[in-house]
Every structure is written in C-alpha cells, then in structure tokens.
Design a protein around this nucleic acid. Structure first.
Length: 894
DNA sequence: GCCCGGACCTAC
DNA sequence: TTAGGTAGGTCCGGGC
C-alpha cells in the first residue's frame, strides 16, 4: 500500500553517480616515484617513455614543497635557485649531488641560472609526474601559495602551468592574487590555493581536524605523530647557511627541507589520511576532494538521496526564507544536575549505543513517514511541516490510524508495516554494515593493511550515523531541516533516558542510585558494592533496559569508576576499570583541565598527579605535600617554560570585536607590526606565557611569546599568576568537593619573598637592573648589566659560599684555598658536563656538532632549547671560574 | 561588588 | 559562495 504523502518536493543538487568512477579513474593513474619521496634510495629514473622505474603504490601523492622562503616573510622575495629532486633534461642546467644529506647518500640537485628558469624546472617536474595531490604544510602563506605569489611577481601564472587544464601559455597571469595577498583566500582544506585538476592539501589544516593539539607547528605535529624531534631554524639562519656556508652547510639546508617534504607525507601515511579519505569517498559516494572540503551535510545528502531516488522521492530544497520561518526546536536533551562530590564507591557508566540513529530505526522516524503534529491532523487543509506544508485526505488517515506511533512531543509517524522510512533504512544499513565490518576486523586481525582499511570504513559509518540527526536539526545552515523529525528524535531520546533512570531507581535489588546522566548516558552509584558486583549489576541493568526498548536501542556497559569525582555537568574524572579482571585502574577524565587545551601543561600535570595520588592512596596529606612542592618550584622559577605555555586559537583579525582583549589577537597585532606576513593563520594556535610586571598592570600586557622569554633573562614566568589563576582554581574545583581549601595550602607555604618585580635604575648610559629572587627560601640580590646574566656570578657572589662580595672570592673562602680549588673544579666540571650532555642531545636532533655556535633551533617543542640557552649563560661564567681557580692554585703553590 | 556578554573549549 | 546541533563551564573586562 502506498500513501500519497507528498513531502519531498522541489529540485535538489544533482549528485552524480559518475563521481565514484571518476574517483577510481583518478587514483588508478597515480604514480609515485620512490626516488623522489625517499631521497636516500638510489633508484635510477629514466625520464622518457615507459621505461621509467616507478612504483605504483597504494597511497598517492607526490610533489610537495614546504617553506620555500628563505629570506623573510614580508613579501615574496627572490628565490634562491635550488630545486631538490630529479632535475630536468634541459641542456642549460647542470646537475649534481649534494652529499651528506639525511640519507648520507645525497640528493640529486639541478642547478639553474635564473629564478624564472627555476620555475620552469618546477613546472616540468610537476608535469612529468602528473600528481593528483599536491601537498604542503602551510599551502597558503608558504609552499605552493608562496610559489604562486612569487611567480606572479615574475609575471608568470604558475597555477595555470601546473594545472591539468592549462589555458593558452601566453595568457596573462592573474596579477590580482599576488598583491591582494593570501589573506583574502578562503578558509578550506587547501588553504584557498586551487589548482585545476589537482587536489591541493594543506597538511596543517588537515591535521587540525585530525588531532587535538595545543600547537600545530610542523615540529610539534611531527613529534606528536612520528614521535621524533626535529629542529626548526629561522629563515635568516637558513639563508645564511645557504649563501655563505660551506657545501656541507648547503646540504644541511637541502636536508632541512627534504625532511619537511618527506615529513608531510610520513605523517599522512602514519595517520592513514589518504587511505581513510579514499574509504570515505567510496562509502559516501562522493569525490575524494569533497571528503576534505565539504561538510557533513553533503555526505548525509549523498547517501540519503541515493536511497530516496529509487523509491521515487525528491528532496525539498527550501529557500533561506523558508528555512528561517521554520518553527524553532522545542525538545532539549536531558542533562541531569550531577551530585557533585567525591565518590569512594563504584560508579557505573552506562550509555546507549548510537542512541539517535537507533531511535530513528526503532521508531521509524523519517521525513517520509511523518504525518506531522497530532493536533494538526484534525484540521483540514494545509498545515506547516518542516520548511514546507503538508496535507492529508481524511480517508488516508482513517486507513492508517491504528498503525502509527506518536512521539513524546506529539508528532505522528506511520509504522514500518505501512511504509519503511528512507532514513531508518539508511541508518539500519549503516549500523549493520558497521557491525559486519567490525566483525571482519576481528577475523583479519593479522592483516594490518586490511585492518586499517576496515577501521577507516567502520569509522566513516559511525560518523555518518551520528551526523544524520544533525542534518534534520540544522536549522541555521541546513539544506533540508525538519523540526518535527528532529524534535521527535530528541524527545524520544529524552524519554528513553528518563525511562531507563526510572527503571534503575525502581529496581530495589540493585540498590542503585543515578547520580548523573546526559543525553544518552547514566552514572549509577552502587553504594557498598565491590568492583566485581558492580560489573555484575551493570550488566544486569544493561540487559533489562535494552529489553525494555525496541530494537536496536541498546544500553551498553561502558566502564566502572572506582573512585571518582563528579564536578559539574560535562566534567568528571575517576579511576576507570573496563573489565572485571582488570587489576590496575586507568585515570580517566572528561571535560576537566587535564584534558582541556585552554590551560597549560603544568596545570594538567599537577592536577592529574594530585588526583591520581588521591584515588590511589585516599591520603590527602600526600596530595598536599605534592602540591606544595610544585607551588614552591613555581615560585622559585625552577620550572620548565614549556610547561607554562598557554595557547589559544587565533580567529583572524576581522573576527574579533574591536574592543576584544584576547592574548592571541594582541600577540598577532604585535607580530604584524614588525612583519606583515607574520600574522598567524586563522585557526592557528598562538602560544604565549605570562610574565611578571608592575602591580596593577593589566594581564594582557604581561603576555609574551615563549621565545622572547627564553631569550631575555630579565623576563620571568609569573609564578603568582600561574598559581593563583591557573593551578589553584583547577585544583580547587576538584578538591573543594572533599572539603579541602587548596588556597590555604598555598598560604601555608613557608614565607619567602614572592613575586619580585624587576626595578630598573638608570646608571649613566647603561641600564642596571636590580632583581631579587628567592632560592631555597634565601634571599639573594643580583645586580647585573642587562643581557649578561653570567657576570653577576663572578662579580657579586662568592662562587663558593654565595656570600655577597665584589672581589671574586669572599675573604673567608680565600683563606681556604683547598676548599676553593675543590669546589671550583667541581663546578667547572659540572658546567662542562651539563653543557656536553645538552650539546649531545642537540646534536642528535639538529646534527649541528659545533658547540661554539649558539643554539639555532627555535622549535617551541625543543627540549634542549631552554636548557641550552640556560647552559649557554652559565657557560659564560666558566672563564671567570677558571681564572679564579688558576689564581687560587698559583697563590697556593709557592 | 555584582552582573552580563564575549571568547574559548569541551561533552554529548 | 561556506556552514550538523545544543548545553555547559570558566575567565576576563566593562557597565552599573
């Protein structure tokens, strides 16, 4: 029986079935030269005809550039004429090898005589390999974007030349884009750089979606993904090395960029991005590029319409006005107010598995099965429905009146016996396929490659299932929203959760109490139960609740917290057990500072350690002493700068209110003042630290880029700020629930001179700074000339006993030359060995063995950077110490 | 000192 | 010319 329910009308964007075939066509032609990607392996490449030795490999990307700017970031400057990789056949070019590269074997280098020739070579490389995908870490400002801008300055249209559909070669380049600057480029996965026929991927933008990190610098993401530290050198240094350095230095520059080019590829490979994207494209039936560039509505629509078309449905295509006029959503998901406290008994975490999709399937909720609101059915004529209207004949209603379900908010849907909805069918297929895929993953656990592909597939299925609800509820930007359907899903979910809670509370034998729940999860406290009992009861509850609901709605046993802290809605943490036989619990947290990116690592570390101590020992005194130790360290400045870096996302200059007072914006403004191209990319995370300033100075003025603080010894981390505004509030939110006042712990600390502020005195033409700081609760006064921290050791303090003196050694120590000799030798030895170990560490990363050159790597993640800077300062005291030692031994010998 | 809105980030 | 949703917590600055 077919009911003439006419709800999907109008025209719709045409999703072609051709897309997948096109995509296959694309990927099948992808050829990768191993030689190019792995410069170390010497494979001969013949560039003519079919004889070239190339490898067809599964993943498919080829040419990429990283930062091609050596000089400055201001505006596209002249490029130094180097092109790494296989060179061209042109007779004017010379070719050679640079040895001493990453591989030790060398990279083939083509030398050209002019910059325009360099571009010709680049174009020929691209054309020869004809890649589908062009990679770059930051495609907009550097890499391809930079090359395009630079080429435009030389009056050449690079985009056209490397595209797959080049226009006439004499066509005028698009001069606009060069000076309009990259700022105007839209935000997309290609960073706005578009090359017809090829997919341009901005690796940074891709990874931003992929991983939640506090920093998205190349070095940082590379470390997070590949677990390998790599250095970062400023452009000036690289330029210097390249232009004035030895051949080995030049090779290092080439190496540096090769590592980055290769690194981009390595990261994508490790994360299986290309494989996964291909899987998604296949799964959703959309093009490869659209997986990266389009949103979730596009995916849902692609799948939905494939099912709708054979069933003879046409989707509505409401206008903006129609969408705006649609009734507002009424139903809210259920979020209980948690009983905030520390729970020393087991707490079960149960949640409904894919609740929204399950409801759609279980109750047959769909655009095509909806009869509208119950109250409208008694009326005659059109009534509003979603973005359009709906009308029924009385006899139709009479026929189905016993075969309907009514959602909690009073919307009527017909049973599957009358008509199976498109959305339920789609989701059912998705969920059952996912279960199947998961099953075959288990079956083929040994086959790593297959497993990766299957995992990508099941992930894609899960994603699409979860966003299908969003599609119906997208009232702001939706292409086909429908309040009735969306509200019914949320309403039913709410009702389902409420019913489950009621059932749990009503069943006496479990002696369970629901202490928190949100949308699709319940937290059940089992007072006095053991861990094993908790698992048993948890399973019983899940079975009972599942049986109480239509298929495929299922309450799933997630984990047991024992013990745990519920702070507020969306914020909790605990020691987690996932199986009954698990003996060692795992710390698990949601929403609190240990998992948030808006606090610094130090806060996360202190909080996590404190909570772990509390959960494992139940002993607050241990927590207290730990916290106090950390606070003391912070006050004394004996902490790592890196742990105190805060990083916030920068939205772009125009995206803030004029009066907005945001560190990221402030630092961006300061940066732009010196270098217009130094503005952070929209979406980039801007790191900063807070330093000491004058009393009453607004916080925003105490914000500094970390490197500035690392280089300037007069700037000190604002320990008081970090303690009172970062560490203690976070601790307080967790521990106040146990009746602890962490601020009192802070006040209980032994009194030391806190928060010394550098006072500046003008003495003649040189700035003399007087700084006080506390160390081991003793107060020292350091007087030093700005910039040479090392001097005060020799001039102000006795290096043996630390007493104030201006004669090198204090009078009492001078009377004991043996002690002086011993202590000084020891100190010299310590400094030297510390310096040596730091140098070795540095060498292993940057391969710069020369300790005499100052540390060049400016990567914020560099573990050596701050230590090296520090030892560099102390190294300056060496001559003084040596002189003192010489003097002592000389005066002793006669 | 209180309240509010903006900014940011997270859970579901 | 591009977009799934809502709820929630915290910090900060400005207005009263």
């Amino acid at each position: 029986m077919t009911i003439p329910i006419q709800i999907l009308t109008g025209n719709q964007q045409n999703f072609s079935r051709r897309t997948y075939r096109e995509w296959l066509l694309l990927t099948s032609r992808i050829v990768v030269s191993r030689r190019y990607m792995f410069p170390g392996r010497r494979r001969k490449i013949h560039h003519h005809g079919n004889s070239r030795t190339t490898h067809q490999i599964k993943s498919h990307l080829l040419i990429q550039t990283h930062q091609s700017q050596h000089q400055t970031r201001k505006c596209p400057e002249k490029l130094t004429s180097i092109s790494a990789g296989p060179g061209g056949q042109s007779s004017q070019t010379t070719r050679g090898y640079l040895s001493g590269c990453v591989s030790g074997e060398g990279v083939e280098v083509t030398y050209v005589s002019s910059e325009s020739e360099l571009f010709e070579q680049l174009v020929s490389v691209v054309r020869r390999h004809d890649p589908d995908i062009l990679l770059g870490y930051d495609v907009t400002m550097m890499s391809w974007g930079y090359l395009i801008d630079r080429a435009a300055v030389l009056n050449s249209n690079l985009t056209n030349q490397i595209s797959r559909t080049p226009h006439q070669p004499d066509q005028k380049p698009n001069v606009d884009r060069a000076d309009s600057g990259s700022r105007t480029r839209p935000k997309s996965s290609s960073g706005g750089v578009q090359i017809p026929g090829r997919i341009v991927v901005s690796v940074w933008r891709l990874l931003r979606k992929e991983l939640a990190l506090t920093s998205y610098s190349f070095e940082s993401t590379f470390f997070q993904v590949m677990h390998q530290r790599i250095p970062m050198f400023p452009f000036q240094t690289l330029t210097q090395w390249y232009e004035n350095g030895t051949l080995a230095k030049r090779a290092e520059v080439v190496d540096y960029y090769m590592l980055r080019c290769h690194g981009n590829y390595q990261m994508l490979e490790k994360l299986n991005v290309i494989g996964r994207t291909s899987e998604f494209a296949r799964l959703y039936g959309i093009e490869f590029e659209n997986v990266l560039t389009r949103g979730s509505q596009y995916r849902v629509e692609s799948m939905l319409l494939r099912l709708a078309k054979p069933a003879n449905y046409i989707a509505t295509s409401p206008s903006i006005q129609q969408r705006a006029r649609m009734a507002a959503l009424e139903c809210l998901p259920l979020i209980l107010e948690p009983e905030s406290k520390f729970y020393s008994d087991p707490v079960l975490l149960l949640d409904f598995q894919s609740l929204y999709p399950s409801i759609v399937i279980g109750y047959n909720y769909c655009y095509t099965t909806c009869l509208g609101r119950l109250r409208n059915l008694v009326l005659h004529g059109n009534f509003t429905f979603g973005t359009t209207t709906l009308k029924f004949k009385a006899h139709v209603l009479k026929k189905v009146k016993d075969k309907v379900t009514i959602s909690p908010n009073g919307v009527v849907f017909v049973d599957p016996t009358v008509r199976r909805g498109v959305m339920p069918r789609m989701l059912e297929e998705i969920l059952s396929t996912r279960i199947m895929v998961k099953g075959s993953m288990k079956k083929h656990a040994a086959d790593k490659a297959l497993n990766r592909m299957l995992d990508a597939r099941q992930m894609g299925l899960k994603l699409i299932a979860n966003v299908t609800y969003g599609y119906t509820a997208a009232s702001f930007s939706g292409r086909m929203p429908c309040v009735e359907v969306a509200d019914s899903i949320v309403g039913k979910a709410r009702e389902t959760l409420e019913r489950a809670i009621k059932l749990i509370s009503a069943t006496r034998e479990w002696r369970a109490r629901v202490v928190y729940g949100a949308t699709d999860s319940v937290f059940v406290l089992l007072k006095g139960a053991s861990k094993e009992e908790a698992f048993r009861i948890g399973r019983e509850i899940c079975d009972r609740v599942t049986a109480d609901n239509p298929k495929p709605i299922k309450l799933k046993f997630e984990k047991v917290y024992y013990p745990c802290i519920l702070q507020t809605k969306n914020r909790y943490c605990g020691y987690m057990y996932e199986t009954p036989d698990q003996t060692e619990p795992v710390y698990d947290a949601k929403g609190i500072e240990t998992v948030r990116r808006d606090t610094c690592p130090a806060v996360a570390k202190v909080l996590e350690k404190s909570l772990s101590l509390l959960f494992s020992t139940f002993d607050l005194s241990q927590v207290k002493s730990y916290v106090q130790r950390q606070l003391t360290k912070l006050l004394d400045g004996h902490v790592s700068l890196q742990d105190h870096i805060l990083a916030k996302e920068y939205r772009g200059r125009g995206k803030y209110r004029p009066s907005a007072c945001v560190p990221a914006l402030e630092l961006a403004r300061r940066g732009v003042a010196t270098d217009p191209r130094a503005e952070p990319r929209p979406g980039e995370r801007v790191p900063y630290v807070v330093v000491y300033g004058h009393p009453g100075q607004p916080l925003i003025q105490l914000v500094r880029p970390p490197l500035e603080v690392a280089k300037d010894p007069t700037l000190r981390l604002n320990g008081v700020y970090y303690i009172t505004k970062q560490v203690l509030p976070a601790l307080d939110r967790a521990l106040s629930l146990l009746g602890v006042d962490v601020y009192q712990w802070y006040r209980d600390l032994p009194r030391v001179i806190r928060a010394p502020l550098p006072a500046i005195q003008e003495t003649g033409d040189r700035k003399l700074k007087v700084k006080t700081c506390s160390s081991n609760a003793r107060l020292f006064t350091f007087v030093y000339l700005q910039g040479t921290l090392g001097q005060y050791f020799a001039t102000v303090h006795c290096p043996i006993c630390n007493e104030l003196t201006n004669e090198g050694l204090c009078s009492s120590c001078r009377g004991n030359p043996q002690l002086v000799a011993t202590v000084l030798s020891r100190q010299i030895h310590d400094i030297e060995s510390a310096h040596h170990s730091v140098t070795m560490l540095c060498h292993s990363c940057t391969r710069t063995p020369d300790p005499s050159i100052p540390h060049q790597c400016v990567s914020l993640d560099c573990p050596v950077l701050y230590r090296r800077l520090h030892t560099h300062h102390t190294l300056q005291t060496l001559p003084n110490l040596t002189r003192l030692l010489d003097h002592t031994t000389l005066s002793k010998s006669p």
